Simulated assay, not measured.
Amino acid sequence: MLGRTAHGLFWMCRYLERAENTARLLEAGFHMALTRDVATAEEEWRSVIEAFGQRAGYEAKHGTYTGHQAWNYLLRDPDNASSVLAMIGAARTNARAVRNAISGELWEAINESWMEISRLLARPVAQSSVGEAVQIIRRAGTAVHGAITGSMLRNEGFHFARAGTFVERADCVARILDMKYYLLLPSLSYVGTSLDTGQWDQVLRSVSGDRAFRWLNAGRIEARQIVEFLVLDDRFPRSLAFCHSALREELAALARMHGREGDSNAQMRAQATRLGELTIEGIFEQGLHEFLLEFMEANHAIARAIAEDYRFLS
């Protein structure tokens, strides 16, 4: 497979996953901000913007962090190259460039999602429409993932697409966790309070993990168990352990097809060993923020190695 085709499939799914996770995080911030006073609500929105590294761009345009400004910046602002609208457009551009490598059903799912979301975000989104916007974006992600799983030949293209999905999902979940632990909580005095519990509940909802977590933990909402669930529980398809386990399988499949392993396979094995030896006690002893920074850097290094191994175009 040509490097440009692999690049297009990999980034098509990265952009789609990033758009969906931006919407998920926005929804969590929206619900948190609704329960806070004006000053604290602005802090919530600042943390959401910062979680995706968009603070500099946002502050170049806005002097305050009101909800209306924040969610429209994340969803549709033409000056934000990382808005949901821009990422869905980038995913469609990549999909169009690799039309011959994807199924007709997948192209239709991406193109129709782009048209629906473009119409939805053609005008500023009011508070009453935020929930609808998030649901449509999340539904688009579900439709695309279903088309990939249900209609794509299990060839190189499928594995590059899936690899892009899991690289991006791991990064986004790590950012969401880091936002809660390092940015969101205003003071250690809030730990264990209803505010703290409510924020952790929203984190679970933002990754669609609230029901699964409650089923496994008899309804208890405790930070330590939530971190263990989102980092180490490989039964949950958005945990860091699951994402890297799935990514390792996709890269192993590509290595078999190409008859050789690359640096990305070696890095994945090393990362699998690190995660396999981790305990929740070890994570908190190191510091959750420090662990997440280390994880995100390893994840970025793996993504770079994939691009080098398969000669992606820059």
Results as ranks from 00 to 15, higher is better:
126 A>T: 11
127 Q>C: 11
292 L>A: 10
54 Q>I: 00
44 E>N: 06
266 A>Y: 15
276 G>F: 01
215 W>P: 07
97 A>V: 01
36 R>Q: 09
212 A>K: 00
275 L>W: 15
59 E>G: 01
73 Y>P: 01
256 R>K: 13
224 R>W: 06
234 D>H: 01
39 A>M: 15
158 F>W: 09
241 A>I: 05
132 E>T: 14
105 E>F: 12
98 V>D: 00
313 L>E: 14
199 Q>N: 14
188 L>T: 11
200 W>Y: 05
170 A>N: 11
122 A>C: 13
47 S>G: 09
97 A>C: 06
220 R>K: 13
105 E>R: 11
245 S>N: 06
235 R>Y: 02
161 A>H: 10
223 A>G: 11
309 D>K: 06
90 A>D: 15
176 I>S: 05
103 S>C: 13
314 S>G: 11
276 G>D: 00
209 G>P: 01
227 V>Q: 12
299 N>F: 05
132 E>M: 13
126 A>R: 14
6 A>C: 08
65 Y>C: 01
214 R>F: 08
262 G>M: 05
236 F>A: 02
251 L>G: 09
121 L>R: 07
196 D>K: 04
224 R>Q: 05
251 L>I: 14
140 A>K: 04
17 E>W: 07
222 E>L: 12
46 R>P: 11
256 R>F: 12
48 V>A: 00
164 G>M: 06
82 S>V: 02
238 R>S: 12
195 L>I: 07
80 N>E: 01
286 Q>I: 13
295 F>V: 03
150 G>Y: 05
116 E>S: 15
135 Q>Y: 14
24 R>W: 08
291 F>A: 04
162 R>Y: 07
208 S>C: 13
280 I>A: 09
78 P>I: 03
177 L>H: 04
89 G>P: 07
137 I>A: 02
126 A>K: 11
296 M>L: 13
5 T>I: 08
241 A>L: 03
63 G>N: 12
141 G>P: 10
208 S>G: 09
241 A>Q: 05
193 T>V: 12
16 L>R: 06
70 A>Y: 06
102 I>R: 08
65 Y>N: 00
285 E>D: 14
249 E>R: 15
298 A>L: 15
53 G>N: 03
45 W>I: 02
111 N>E: 14
31 H>S: 11
249 E>G: 13
278 L>Y: 12
145 H>C: 03
268 M>E: 00
118 S>A: 10
313 L>P: 09
227 V>F: 13
239 S>M: 01
124 P>V: 06
41 A>I: 05
8 G>A: 13
175 R>W: 04
252 A>W: 06
222 E>N: 14
294 E>M: 07
124 P>G: 02
287 G>K: 06
6 A>H: 07
239 S>Y: 09
221 I>K: 03
32 M>W: 12
207 V>A: 10
17 E>T: 10
257 M>A: 15
141 G>E: 07
84 V>G: 02
147 A>P: 00
85 L>N: 11
18 R>H: 07
247 L>C: 01
225 Q>W: 08
181 Y>W: 15
4 R>M: 09
198 G>P: 05
176 I>W: 03
95 A>R: 02
97 A>L: 08
236 F>K: 00
250 E>T: 09
301 A>Q: 09
70 A>G: 11
23 A>T: 02
231 V>Y: 03
310 Y>E: 04
190 Y>N: 04
254 L>N: 01
301 A>E: 06
232 L>G: 05
81 A>P: 10
160 F>H: 02
115 M>G: 14
222 E>I: 13
281 E>R: 15
170 A>K: 07
287 G>S: 12
